[in-house]
Design a protein around this nucleic acid. Structure first.
Length: 488
RNA sequence: CGGGGCGUGGCGCAGUUGGAUAGCGCGCUGCGUUUGGGACGCAGAGGUCGCCGGUUCGAGUCCGGCCGCCCCGACCA
């Protein structure tokens, strides 16, 4: 009972202070640390390993859908950013600008990329000549910088890591299709790898990417019922094609502007995983992304016991490792098994195996699930056929975490028939309303309730601007049904 | 940038109206006993008290000025 506050282990309970809980988890689970520069974080090995797993799964999906990786420069001429009117306006306040190089003032300031539509557009215009060059499907893994006022580890830092996909197409249909296809890729990744049940939707004009025709998003619900935008996909129309002169010659030998898209997912996803799954014991990682899937805790008293136990541990682990299960043996000396159990729970390892003298006698091991707290999640299993037993459990945990998160989300989605009803709902959940999509209306809602429009969910909107539906808040014709909630 | 708070070993803090060698918990090092849900004993290491200046016989403590951080508000993956 008096365990969660002892020493350097244990986190602030979520109910007491959710932000502090989050910060505690990030630091105590050893994911990240604060860097010397305001708003910049250091991603520690454990956190980076998680990011690498995220990268791996996404990258696989990008390749499978025909995209190729490339790399574009960090520095962008200021003039590039200024070319697209809405784009500058959107990004101007958060640009980091380099004015000096080699001890001299530069003729033209360089912007540290906040995103790469402009440079990539510039290059695309040189690479694309003919319809035979299309579609051009490019992705880059990179860091970007957006000067932020208030920062939080993983969720909003001045520098962050992400991937940005950039594609050019011959037709609008194809570009729209690409935008939605990549949204599906993100949703598939979130649901099946991260075990986060996201809602796919379209952003309001207010929330739309600066320079896009339409922005799509996957929205996830965090443990405090706030929303987190976990990935975005943008239909850029011909906006960037026109400003950067991305043209191709069609079959009739006529010049046409391309239709472009861009889409991104960032290290913010790590924050989403923490907040969608974490509990008062700390982090809970979905097995498919967890850097360590199975942690093994040897238990022994004497040197004699230690020798026997360690022998069994290696014996048991070798085949598991050889089939690709990510196993960690906790051989640290001078720490009790109890401490180690709590420590690895804090770090979110999905499955734990305890091996001690009693297990050797019975030719068994103890398995404990992170997603089922306490004794209930613990089970002695025989040493025979451990590979399928462990694989099965990891799959179960993965599925269970998705189920838990889905149940939690669904409990907190509510339709609101009136503005008053909506006000109540968004205090502690997401409200679905008919919404006009007008910035003035959204501003008012935000002012009065602190909630913002998250998205017009695709599965609840067969068509935009349906006849006869009125905005629940202002009474103007509705663009569609939209979720509103507090958001990160 | 506005409001609130805070800077003291790695972390969290205490330090009274100025007073002696700056203390406590956790962590860290060594040794021993422990080890199936956050072990214990003993012995150690580690601090220009954010920075600069001032008042004073004497400043962690008082005054002034900087710097940095955290929380709350307007922008954002």
């Amino acid at each position: 009972m008096e365990k969660s506050t002892k020493g350097s282990v244990g986190v602030t309970p979520r109910q007491e202070d959710y932000s502090r809980w989050y910060t505690d988890v990030v630091q105590k689970a050893d994911l990240a640390d604060y860097g010397p520069v305001r708003g910049c974080m250091v991603i520690k090995p454990y956190g980076y390993a998680l990011w690498e797993n995220i990268q791996g799964e996404l990258d696989k999906r990008f390749k499978a859908t025909g995209h190729q990786n490339a790399y574009f420069p960090l520095f962008i001429p200021m003039s590039f950013i200024e070319k697209e009117a809405e784009h500058v306006e959107g990004f101007a306040p958060e640009l980091a600008v380099v004015t000096h190089g080699g001890g001299k003032e530069l003729e033209e300031p360089l912007v540290v990329r906040p995103t790469s539509e402009t440079v990539i557009g510039h290059m695309f215009s040189q690479w694309i000549q003919s319809h035979r060059d299309l579609p051009l499907l490019i992705n880059q893994w990179a860091n970007v910088v957006r000067w932020e006022m208030r920062t939080r580890l993983f969720l909003r830092t001045s520098e962050f890591l992400w991937q940005e996909g950039h594609t050019a197409h011959a037709t609008q249909e194809e570009a729209v299709q690409e935008t939605l296809r990549m949204l599906d890729v993100y949703a598939d990744f979130a649901i099946n790898e991260a075990a986060i049940p996201v809602i796919k939707g379209r952003k309001s004009d207010q929330e739309r990417f600066a320079g896009a025709v339409a922005s799509y998003t996957i929205e996830a619900m965090m443990g405090n019922k706030w929303a987190l935008q976990a990935g975005t996909s943008h239909d850029l129309g011909q906006n960037f094609a026109r400003t950067f002169d991305i043209k191709y010659t069609d079959e009739k030998n006529e010049q046409q502007f391309c239709w472009t898209t861009s889409w991104g997912m960032s290290t913010r996803m790590v924050g989403a995983i923490i907040m969608a799954h974490g509990d008062d014991q700390g982090l809970r990682l979905p097995p498919r992304l967890a850097p360590i899937q199975l942690v093994v805790i040897p238990i022994y008293r004497s040197d004699e016991e230690k020798k026997n136990v360690m022998e069994a541990v290696l014996d048991i682990c070798e085949p598991l490792i050889s089939v690709g299960i990510r196993v960690k043996i906790d051989e640290r000396e001078g720490l009790t098994p109890g401490f180690k159990m709590n420590d690895w729970e804090m770090r979110g390892v999905p499955l734990r195996m305890e091996i001690g003298p009693r297990d050797l006698e019975k030719n068994s091991v103890m398995l404990a699930r992170r997603d089922v707290p306490g004794k209930e999640g613990k089970q002695a299993v025989s040493r025979d056929n451990l590979i399928p037993k462990i694989t099965r459990r990891l799959n179960l945990i993965q599925r269970n975490m998705l189920m838990q998160a889905t149940a939690f989300r669904d409990e907190n989605l509510h339709e609101a028939k009136s503005y008053d009803e909506m006000k109540k709902i968004v205090e502690d959940g997401w409200a679905l309303i008919w919404h006009c999509g007008k910035p003035e209306c959204e501003d008012r809602i935000k002012e009065e309730t602190k909630a913002t429009s998250r998205c017009f969910p695709l599965d609840k909107n067969e068509e935009w601007n349906p006849k006869g539906q009125k905005c629940t808040v202002c009474g103007e014709p509705a663009f569609g049904q939209a979720y509103f909630s507090r958001a990160y």
